[in-house]
């Protein structure tokens, strides 16, 4: 009970903070902190006895997510860079 309440309070705090101070670095830090808070307090990651298969799979998934998102942005950024700018919108 206490554990969930702490997690809930921290999440609320981080959410409100992100909505009050909308600055690029600040909201990213808030999001990352909130993900860790919820993983630890709600999903109980890292609080189980060994061997920690859940954690292993989570780390693997994070690597895949990193490759997927990072790779996409990298490649598509380059594609956009190499494309001629088009300013003719077909607005009707």
């Amino acid at each position: 009970m206490k554990f969930y309440t702490i997690g809930f309070a921290l999440s609320l705090l981080l959410t409100m903070a992100a909505f009050l101070f909308i600055q690029i670095h600040f909201i990213i830090i808030c999001a990352i902190l909130q993900i860790f808070v919820q993983l630890f307090f709600f999903l109980h990651v890292g609080r189980k006895e060994k061997p920690r298969w859940n954690l292993t799979v989570l780390v693997f998934a994070c690597i895949i997510v990193g490759i997927l998102v990072g790779g996409t942005l990298w490649i598509m950024g380059n594609v956009q860079h190499n494309t001629m700018p088009q300013n003719t919108y077909l607005n009707d």
Partner: peptide, 30 residues
């Protein structure tokens, strides 16, 4: 644990959608 594996694969699905969103963010067609 099996269900946890499913959630992680769902996580990859959402990552793909986030990546698509990030790429198309500026493509508002005026």
């Amino acid at each position: 644990f099996g269900f946890w594996l499913y959630i992680m694969s769902d996580c990859v699905l959402f990552a793909a959608l986030f990546a698509a969103y990030a790429v198309l963010n500026g493509q508002t067609y005026g």
